[in-house]
């Protein structure tokens, strides 16, 4: 359970095939109330009942933040993943009832910025769709640089160009087009903040380039949710609740804890926010730390674990949960 905010009961209003890899889902409330307004960059956790396995995946909201009639997300099909995106693609249909968390924003705009420079790669476009709608409504200054594989896989390019015109710049890998990042960063007005959402390599490239050019770290923002990796099954003892559980290969430790009926805190479910941090009471073996949260020292000490993305190999693991 995540910090006590009430969940949102929804029905799937619409499923749109955006391209060969991406589907868009629209949710409206079942109880007739208005959706909460949110801030651009926020995500919701979508709860899925995948044939008896409970999956809870975070997705960025891409509908306009002030639109209380419904929420929209886009999901990219991940054939190698644990199954959440495949479930959304293969089984979720209009009319199905589902449950969403309240929106949480771990990738907010900096309200002080004189200009917002948005850099997206692939499905990383989704938080920016909401942020641009918010900036447009408030008269904020922004520019989008969006890298896609090919015109066919350029999700929402036409929509965004139609709405924001010359503020949208699109680059196609298929045509060897590349964002000229050094030049872009060199020509921004003072007070610009940079935001990047996309593949790991792109995020690292933007941070490294900006830092080398003397940009303050606090003016460069990124969001990278990790999908919980698959791995070997392992057993864990939960000391506080007196249970021993088995984590299946395509299940996260957090999901296994929840499946055992133990309430555990979470927000992002992607190794970024720190909310699910758990004390390790005993560790005979090796923790596979997959998160962005713990320091290197903490990881090496094997005294903390982030159960949303991290796994274990060895003889025994005991958690204070």
């Amino acid at each position: 359970m995540s910090v006590g905010a009430p969940k949102i009961p929804v029905v799937v209003a619409e499923v749109i095939e955006v391209n060969a890899l991406i589907k868009r889902f629209r949710f409206v409330r079942r109880d007739g109330l208005a959706m909460p307004v949110f801030s651009g960059g926020a995500h919701v956790v979508v709860e899925m009942d995948d044939h008896g396995t409970r999956r809870m995946n975070p997705y960025s909201l891409m509908s306009a933040p002030g639109d209380t009639s419904g929420y929209e997300i886009s999901v990219r099909r991940d054939e190698a993943g644990r199954g959440g995106s495949l479930y959304m693609h293969n089984h979720v249909r209009a009319g199905m009832e589902m449950v969403l968390s309240q929106p949480v924003n771990l990738f907010p705009l900096d309200a002080r910025a004189k200009k917002h420079l948005l850099i997206a790669g692939g499905i990383g476009i989704t938080p920016f769709v909401a942020q641009m709608a918010q900036l447009e409504a408030m008269g904020g200054r922004f520019e989008l640089h969006y890298s896609v594989r090919s015109p066919a896989l350029g999700a929402y390019v036409d929509h965004l160009r139609g709405r924001y015109g010359a503020r949208v710049h699109v680059y196609h890998d298929a045509f060897d087009e590349k964002i000229d990042l050094a030049n872009l960063l060199k020509t921004q007005p003072l007070g610009t903040h940079v935001y990047v959402c996309g593949p790991k390599g792109m995020i690292a490239w933007v941070h490294a380039t900006a830092r080398a050019m003397g940009w303050p770290d606090r003016a460069v923002h990124s969001e990278e949710f990790l999908a919980p990796p698959v791995g070997l099954a392992f057993d864990v003892s939960l000391a506080a609740s007196g249970k021993t559980i088995t984590v299946q290969p395509n299940q996260s430790l957090l999901e296994a804890i929840e499946a055992a009926g133990v309430d555990a805190p979470y927000l992002c479910r992607g190794g970024a926010c720190g909310q699910c941090e758990t004390d390790v009471l005993r560790c005979e073996g090796h923790i596979e730390h997959n998160d962005h949260w713990l320091s290197d020292d903490q990881k090496a000490s094997h005294t903390k674990i982030m159960p949303c993305v991290s796994r274990f190999r060895g003889a025994g693991l005991v958690l204070d949960r």
Binding site: V3, A5, P6, Q102, L267, G274
Partner: peptide, 11 residues
């Protein structure tokens, strides 16, 4: 501070 940074809308 750690608690408040994670404070949720509606809670």
């Amino acid at each position: 501070l750690k608690f408040l940074l994670k404070l949720q809308h509606g809670a």
